[in-house]
Amino acid sequence: MKQSHPAIQLRDKGGWLAAQDGLVVSFYLHRSPEEVAPAIWRSLQRYLQVIPPKTLNWYVSDEGDMAPLDDAGWEQIRQYLLEPPWSGAWAIELSESPSEAGSYQFEYYGRRLGDPLYKDPATSVSFAFPTQDLREHGALRMRALALELSEELPFNFGYVSPAIVSPHGYWSSGDGHLLETLLTRYPSLDLYHASAYSSVIGAHALSPAWLTFLGQPLLGQLGGINALRNALPFPEVSLLPMVGDRVLVTLDEWPAPIDIEREAIPPQYRALARLMEPFFFQYQGEALLPHQQDVNLRIRRFL
């Protein structure tokens, strides 16, 4: 059943749009970039086929500045994915605007396993869509598209969720009080920051979501598809085995906003969170920074 999603606009002190509501499709691959880059390139091509033409207009250039996404820019992006100029980490960030949050956004962060610059790296890729696409095309179409984007990706973990869409975690420059209010009221909202998580997540998981993708080694650690069936005996839940010893868990017919002022958190979200809890990413240590404590609590919000 179609449910109303909150309309969100967070602006920074200058009045620029820092974040807005949308849907995010995000995957973490516990593989080095050269192993997965061709599959990610093909997923990006599929994303470009389904979003409006000329939507992604800007990218981050070699100099670290926002530059118009012309033919030369696309050639640089292709090289960064398929023929990287160095063996360390690299990033690709494509957006609608050089200064504001758009509805569509692509982020890729190549992280080499064992790179001493990062605590526990994984390669990540994220695709953002506006909430309007969900309203116009429906949940089944968005689910089918997420499956297409994931088809060749040897992900460890992935998800599709209602989200606060913002380039490079720029939501932090918006109204912090409003942001906290939204996250408290709507626990299903994903505050994603792929560049930060890809440096530390390793083979761990984040919170379960409307669509939760599980691959190896995580799926095996959870006990495989039979353990998922036993933990999720709910009529709203479906499990779809995927090629490559992967599975898609669908927790509901629609990506519910879960407004806790009007409803309880659905039991299937809590059940999957309990099964996944031992494998959640968590910052470790006695003297965690405030934002690290907040992240730890946020990831455990369905327990």
Rank of each mutant, 00 (worst) to 15 (best):
R246G: 10
V249P: 05
L272H: 11
N226H: 13
Y269C: 04
A271F: 14
Y269M: 07
L239P: 05
W210R: 05
G202V: 06
Q221K: 15
E253L: 09
L228C: 09
L239S: 05
G223C: 13
P241N: 08
M242V: 14
I258Y: 03
P255F: 00
A231N: 09
R262C: 03
P233Q: 08
Q221C: 11
P267S: 07
I258G: 00
G220I: 07
D245I: 06
L222M: 13
G244K: 09
Q268T: 07
E236P: 01
T250I: 03
I258H: 02
T250S: 13
D252C: 01
L218P: 01
D259S: 03
G220Y: 08
P217S: 09
E261G: 05
E263K: 09
R270V: 11
E253W: 05
S238A: 14
Y269L: 10
L240P: 06
A271W: 12
N226F: 11
Q221G: 05
A209W: 09
G244F: 14
T250D: 01
R246I: 09
P217L: 07
A203T: 07
L218A: 10
G223E: 15
Q216M: 11
R229C: 07
Y269N: 01
E261H: 02
M242D: 13
Y269S: 04
Y269Q: 05
P208Q: 14
L222C: 13
P257L: 02
G223F: 10
W210E: 02
A264V: 07
P255H: 02
L222K: 11
L240M: 14
F213A: 00
M242N: 11
L219R: 06
F234W: 03
F234K: 00
L214F: 00
L222I: 12
G202I: 07
E263G: 02
Q268L: 04
I201D: 09
L239G: 05
D252T: 06
D252E: 08
L228G: 11
I265W: 01
P255T: 01
P257W: 02
A205N: 11
L251S: 06
L240N: 06
P267D: 09
A227S: 14
